[in-house]
Each structure stands twice: as structure tokens, then as C-alpha cells.
């Protein structure tokens, strides 16, 4: 067994698994992960500089091609925890159910590429240059999309709780919370 590949595989398997799980149904996860690491095994020379972005990009291509094979036309959608997601031990920054649902709806309304732009930074923890490499776009184009996607979400959500002018959606959510508290 090649020790360098084994080390790379064990270092990145979990990250790739989670990346894939965020993007495909559970039944397809193992297939995509298998194909991604098989490609990695065969093209180790290409990964020396930045293995993780390379793995993410390859996994993404596997998924997109599989989608095309079965006639799916939509882009790659990043799955989110609609309810009860997140680390159960952590403080949930989205306190209310309705507020979470608002954010879920807003996320689902984003262009798939905008979802990907944000997901790579927030959930995969990549920097702008690495994330741009995953998507095969320039750093400038990536930054522009990321900024635009954040603004779109921010505008829809409105001011943070405690700010003087909450958006109607958030205001409704707070009223509902108060009614049940």
C-alpha cells in the first residue's frame, strides 16, 4: 500500500465524505466517494499542491456527470439541515423554528452556484482561492459571487434581532415565538 496515498486518504476521507453527503442522497454517497478517491489514486501527481480542493472538485464533477447521466438538468444543490441539524452540543445561532425555516427557504431560493460558493467557504472551510479552484472560476469571479450571495441573504433576512427595523419575515417569527413562550 502506498504510504503517501494512504496518509492523504485517511486525512481527507472524512472531509470528502461530508462534502458528498451535503450534495447527494445517501444511497449515492459511497459511489461518489469511491470514484473520487479512485481518481485520486490514479492521479496523485495532480494533487500535490492542494489535495482537498482537488478532491472536492473531482467529487463535484462526479456528481454533476451522474446527474447529467440520469437527465437531471438542475445544478448541484447543496443540502442543508432544515431542522435539528448542526452540532447538537453547540449553541444554535438560529434560535427559532420559523427563523430557521426562513433561512432554509432563502437558501433553497439561491442559485445553485451561489449555494456552492457559500458552502465551500462556510462548511468546507476553504479560502477564496481554494474555493475558486474547486469551481474552476477565477478568484475575482468567486469573490464577486460570494459577496452577491451574502448580500442577497442579508437583504432577505433583514437586520439582526435587536436592530430597530426587523424584516417582516423575522418580525412574524418573533411574534410567533413570543406567543408560545
Amino acid at each position: 500500500m502506498d504510504p503517501s496515498f494512504t496518509e492523504l486518504y485517511r486525512s481527507h476521507y472524512s472531509a470528502v465524505l461530508r462534502f458528498v453527503r451535503r450534495r447527494v442522497r445517501e444511497a449515492d454517497v459511497d459511489d461518489v466517494v469511491s470514484e473520487t478517491f479512485l481518481a485520486a489514486w490514479r492521479r496523485q501527481d495532480e494533487m500535490a499542491a492542494a489535495p482537498l480542493p482537488w478532491l472536492y472538485r473531482t467529487a463535484r464533477n462526479v456528481i454533476l456527470n451522474a446527474n447529467r447521466a440520469v437527465g437531471r438538468r438542475e445544478g448541484l444543490v447543496v443540502r442543508i439541515a432544515s431542522m435539528g441539524g448542526g452540532d447538537p452540543g453547540a449553541v444554535d445561532p438560529i434560535a427559532g423554528f420559523e427563523q430557521r425555516q426562513d433561512l432554509v427557504s432563502l437558501w433553497q431560493g439561491l442559485d445553485p452556484l451561489d449555494q456552492e460558493v457559500l458552502a465551500l467557504q462556510v462548511w468546507e472551510g476553504l479560502g477564496g482561492r481554494e474555493a475558486a479552484a474547486v469551481l474552476g472560476i477565477s478568484r475575482a469571479a468567486y469573490s464577486m459571487r460570494a459577496t452577491r450571495a451574502r448580500r442577497r441573504l442579508a437583504a432577505a433576512i433583514g437586520p439582526e434581532p435587536g436592530d430597530p427595523e426587523p424584516s417582516p419575515a423575522i418580525r412574524v417569527a418573533r411574534i410567533d415565538q413570543e406567543a408560545y413562550s
Partner: peptide, 20 residues
């Protein structure tokens, strides 16, 4: 990390880095 990112973190469908 800005506020949007903090909110999105709470929506991560796969937050646990450890393998079972």
C-alpha cells in the same frame, strides 16, 4: 466570520467531522 456565515453554520447538514 460575518453574521450570515454564522447563521449558515447552524444549517450544516454534516457538522460532525468524526467518523463513526
Amino acid at each position: 466570520m460575518n453574521d450570515i456565515d454564522a447563521l449558515l453554520l447552524g444549517l450544516d447538514a454534516e457538522p460532525g467531522p468524526r467518523l463513526t
